[in-house]
Write a protein that binds this DNA or RNA. Structure first.
Length: 373
DNA sequence: AAATTCAGCAACCGCGACGAG
DNA sequence: CCTCGTCGCGGTTGCTGAATT
């Protein structure tokens, strides 16, 4: 039995509430570099004003590379219903049978949709009626949209003592809203976007149980570059990609040798300022950067796989169509692109150009059914 | 158009489980 | 065996956008 519960952190010293993009990136980058052997110590080492619990939760529920996005499929919902019937509120257990889904997400889906529907059909929950329950709700859990709106928009630091009194949450949120305006109807597509959804389905065997993914700090936990890119998009806020590029690509002499992490002062300062430098221009540049991804042929398998991921993501994000809209924006607003034209976002996370990202060398290969590309 | 209510979801909280010393 | 530190789980909260009045 666990006795003596240590306080997870000094609540007065840590930041709470939604995560900002800068924090996310910081966490991602740290875990890529060092894994997450010790959640308690992680925030300190990563320079985050968060408690370890919060970092863990954020990673598991959102930043983890194998988190599946998008609506729950009919099959998934059926599984949830069945598994819940068998196990009750054992969300993590249920989640372990749904690759890419988190216990939190499943819990939310259950509480907001499935439970109600079951209740409505109470006393009649048998056999094929599961289908009728789930078939009408498969569009209900469009988590991606809401995450973008609420959380990924980032920089929303209400609740926190550290919120400047003159800055209201809604004002900060407008950054996200602007971005969504830019994306226009494309966003609808983005809402449907689920990162490698089918691919993950097809490769579920490569995903061990939820627990093993979480508890091991194996390199497998590290993000694929493509997924990092997706994380950037997820924010619904533009990043100053060029700065990130410069910093991330900077040869890291210490590389995997321990922790010059806080030493990258400029990088982190830049990250800390991310929220304030978001702008349409940057967004445009980022989009262009992704969109212009004519990857050079490198020959190696890894590079090919990376390309496939990126192409897949581009398709999913509808970047082609997005370009048209952004052309207008760029001519009106964008004084100067913040990313050089010849810079690809894909380059940012290209292992070959990022000695920094040691874990990338040991990424699991792409889901084998590459026909999706 | 403004106000109110509802729905959805990320994040937080507290407790129990587990493993190391 | 006991104590302590950490992790993970499940319940709850509170913010946001959408829908309704």
């Amino acid at each position: 039995m666990g006795r003596g519960r240590a306080p997870c952190c000094d609540k007065s010293q840590v930041k709470r509430g939604p995560w900002s993009p800068a924090e996310d990136l910081r966490l991602i980058t740290f875990i890529q570099k060092h894994g997450h052997d010790n959640w308690r110590a992680l925030p300190k080492l990563a320079g985050l004003l968060r408690c370890g619990k919060s970092c863990r939760l954020r990673w598991i529920n959102y930043l983890r590379p194998d988190v599946k996005r998008g609506n729950f499929t009919k099959e998934e919902e059926e599984s949830i219903v069945k598994l819940h019937k068998a196990w009750g509120n054992k969300w993590s257990k249920i989640a372990s049978h749904l690759p890419g889904r988190t216990d939190n997400e499943i819990k939310n889906v259950w509480n907001t949709h499935l439970k109600k529907k079951l209740t409505m059909k109470d006393g009649n929950v048998h056999g094929d009626e599961l289908s009728s329950i789930t078939s009408s709700s498969s569009s209900s859990s469009s988590s991606f949209t809401s995450r973008k709106k609420q959380n990924i928009g980032g920089g929303i630091e209400h609740q926190s003592e550290q919120v400047p009194m003159d800055k209201k949450p809604h004002e900060e949120c407008n950054l996200t809203h602007d971005f969504e305006k830019i994306q226009g109807s494309q966003k609808e597509d983005t809402d449907q976007f689920s990162l490698g959804k089918d691919l993950i389905d097809q490769s579920s065997s490569s995903y061990s149980s939820y627990d093993s993914n979480v508890s091991n700090s194996s390199p497998v936990d590290a993000l694929r570059p493509e997924e990092q890119m997706v994380s950037l998009f997820d924010y619904g806020e533009p990043f100053d990609v060029s700065n990130i590029l410069q910093e991330v690509n900077k040869p890291d002499v210490d590389s995997v040798n321990e922790i010059p992490f806080e030493a990258d002062v400029d990088f982190w300062n830049m990250l800390d300022n991310l929220d304030s430098v978001m702008s349409n221009e940057v967004q445009h540049s980022e989009v262009n950067a992704c969109q212009s991804s004519n990857f050079e042929e490198e020959g190696s398998k890894k590079v090919d796989e990376n390309k496939k991921w990126l192409r897949y993501l581009e398709n999913e994000l509808g970047l082609d169509a997005m370009e048209e809209e952004n052309k207008d924006i760029s001519t009106k607003d964008a004084a100067q692109p913040l990313v050089p034209e010849n810079v690809l976002v894909s380059d940012i996370f290209k292992p070959e150009t990022n000695p920094d990202m040691g874990y990338f060398e040991t990424w699991p290969s792409l889901p084998h059914n590459s026909s999706a590309f």
